[in-house]
Design a protein around this nucleic acid. Structure first.
Lengths: 201, 201
DNA sequence: GCTGATAGAGAATCGTGAATCACAATGCAC
DNA sequence: GTGCATTGTGATTCACGATTCTCTATCAGC
């Protein structure tokens, strides 16, 4: 049967979301035009009405990613005023998002970055740097407020914050979900906190 | 010209190493039978004399990986007696190895794990768990020695140790090597240390 | 309801890479 | 040196996925 005719603007969003979902839940090699098309409910060739090709779809996925990370930082800022509370909120939201999109890091790390498209790698870099920048800003504010040690470099601490999640996610994935990543974050937070916070005396 | 005839035992090692090198330095999509064959100096079809297929080669790569991680822990134990020194040595060796094999984590995370081979995923899990176990043992010894806080779970702390490297490596990769990952580890170590070590008072 | 522009369908093309096969060369055992 | 098992070669098959092309259906404006 024939799919309902929808305008490109709508289809573009549908296709990008479907592609993100496929790539995030089933891995990069599952991202085929055919699979995306089926998920959206159209035929493979129809995809080309809305995207020039697979590359364009990958770029659209990155745009979705950038939006997500941006909103994680924004929401954490809105929800808390204490820098340390904001950081904890970020890592919690970060983990929640990645839990729902298991394969995303792997994809971003391999398929997308190491394709033969330098400009796409630059895009990923910009997204990551913006995300880190948002975290570093909060760390800097914590230093100004005197609750985070001045001798921790914001960039290093920002990367370590993300480092709470990364290997745990890997373990979670290879063990088929047997490792409780949310509990891990809760257990890791005090350690991270002890590492960065300024102690009296 | 014709390649020298070598026995399967030798070729197996050559092929596995070549494959690891390709996959680690150029990314998973560059791992083709043709590429491996060329690197070894034989013709694609000759590869099938030694491996039943691509899957078997991937398994061989995992064996190489397991060996490497095992030796990282062993060497760190041999080089130091203090648990904290051992941990720092492990993360340093870990980073050095991964710096020389940039794409490896991405590959292990995506291509290998999320292929449709559950038994391979199990193999990766076992490798990771063994590696973590080695680190946890050292952490446990540190707790017994009274230099690591008893309230840090060894598994969590072991994962966080690896977490020092993971996001930094990602940044390093997307920025084309512009982030100094060795310096990152040196800067991150004191933060990690402050997080896990037992403080007087 | 007509019409043009837009979007979907389906067949066909094209390139790629894994895997197979029959044949040739090599090297060790004797 | 002969023989046989092993290894290497080149051609070929096969499947798959991206892309293109042409035709057809739909929708919005009139």
């Amino acid at each position: 049967m024939r799919a309902r005719k929808l305008d490109t603007k709508t289809r573009k969003v549908q296709i990008a979301r479907a592609a993100l979902d496929l790539i995030a839940k089933q891995g990069p090699e599952c991202l085929s035009i055919a699979a995306v098309a089926e998920k959206v409910g159209i035929v493979p060739s129809a995809v080309y009405r809305h995207f020039t090709g697979k590359d364009a779809i990958l770029n659209a996925i990155l745009d979705l990613l950038a939006t997500t990370f941006r909103s994680i930082v924004t929401q954490a800022r809105a929800a808390h005023s204490d820098p340390l509370d904001r950081l904890r909120d970020i890592i919690r939201r970060h983990v929640r998002f990645l839990s729902e999109n298991q394969h995303l890091p792997a994809v971003v790390a391999s398929e997308i970055i190491f394709g033969d498209h330098p400009e796409r790698r630059a895009k990923v870099r910009d997204i990551l740097l913006e995300y880190l920048g948002g975290i570093e800003a909060i760390l800097g504010e914590g230093q100004l407020a005197g609750i985070i040690r001045e001798d921790v470099a914001p960039r290093v601490a920002a990367l370590m914050l993300l480092g709470i999640e990364a290997p745990a996610a890997a373990l979670w994935k290879v063990s088929g979900g047997a490792y409780d990543i949310v509990a891990h974050v809760e257990a890791a937070w005090p350690i991270y906190l002890a590492g960065v916070e300024k102690r009296p005396g």
